[in-house]
Simulated assay, not measured.
Amino acid sequence: MCPSGRSLSLPSSSSSSSSASGSTVNSSFRPAFDVLDSDRDGKISGDDLRAFYAGRDAADIDDDLIGTMMTVADTNKDGFVEYDEFERVVLGGGKENGSVSSPTSFLEEMFKVMDKDEDGQLSHRDLKSFMGMAGLAVTDDDIDAMIMLAGGDRNGGVTFEGLHRILMNR
C-alpha cells in the first residue's frame, strides 16, 4: 500500500512469493528484487548485477564490488541471492562477519542508482523513473506522498537519511 492509502499495481498478481522451501515470504521489497533479477529466474546472480549496472554511469562498479555484494547477501553460499537473503540485507540483517559491505552501504548503492541526476536527493522524477523500472504503476500523488513520508519536499526530494528512515522503520 502506498503512503496515500492506495495499493500499487504490481506486474504479477501475487503479493507474496514462495521460497524454495515452499514457505511464503513477505514481498515488500519484491519490486526492487525483480529489478535486480534481470534474467527473471527468481534469484540474483553476479551476472544479474553486472547487467543491472551495465549502461549506467557506474564506472566504480567492478567485479570485486559485485563479489562483495554477493558475499554479503548470499548467506547459504549457493552463488545466488534468493529473495529472503535480499530482504534480510535490505532490512539490516546481513552477515555479521566483518565484511567491508553493510546493509547501509547496500542501501547507499541502491540510492545512488535511483538518484539519476546525482544531486544527493531522490526527486519526484527519480522516484517515478525507478518505480516505472520496478514495474510499479504510481501516480504523481503517490510519489508526492512517498516524498512527504520520508521527510522531503516536492521541490527538493528525499535524502538518503529519509529513505533509510522509512526502509528501516526508524
Score class of each variant (00 low, 15 high):
F86A: 05
L163K: 10
F29D: 06
S9R: 13
S45F: 01
R40Y: 04
V25T: 14
T71R: 14
L36D: 00
M69W: 04
R6V: 03
L107M: 13
R170W: 09
E108K: 11
K112C: 04
I66D: 01
D62H: 01
P3M: 03
D140R: 01
R170M: 13
M168Y: 07
E82Q: 11
S102N: 07
S129T: 04
A150H: 07
E161D: 11
D126T: 06
L91V: 06
F86S: 03
M168H: 09
R154I: 12
V100C: 11
D84W: 05
D119Y: 06
E108T: 09
I166E: 08
S38P: 06
N169M: 08
R50C: 06
N97Y: 08
E118L: 14
A20I: 11
D34G: 07
D63H: 02
V89P: 03
G55H: 04
L8Q: 14
L65F: 02
C2V: 07
T104I: 05
F80R: 10
F29A: 07
V25N: 14
K95G: 13
N169D: 15
L107H: 06
R6L: 12
R170H: 13
T159G: 08
A32P: 03
S123P: 02
D64R: 04
S9H: 14
S7Y: 10
D34W: 02
L149F: 09
H124I: 10
V81T: 05
F111W: 04
I166N: 03
V90P: 05
V25Q: 15
F52T: 13
M114V: 04
E85G: 04
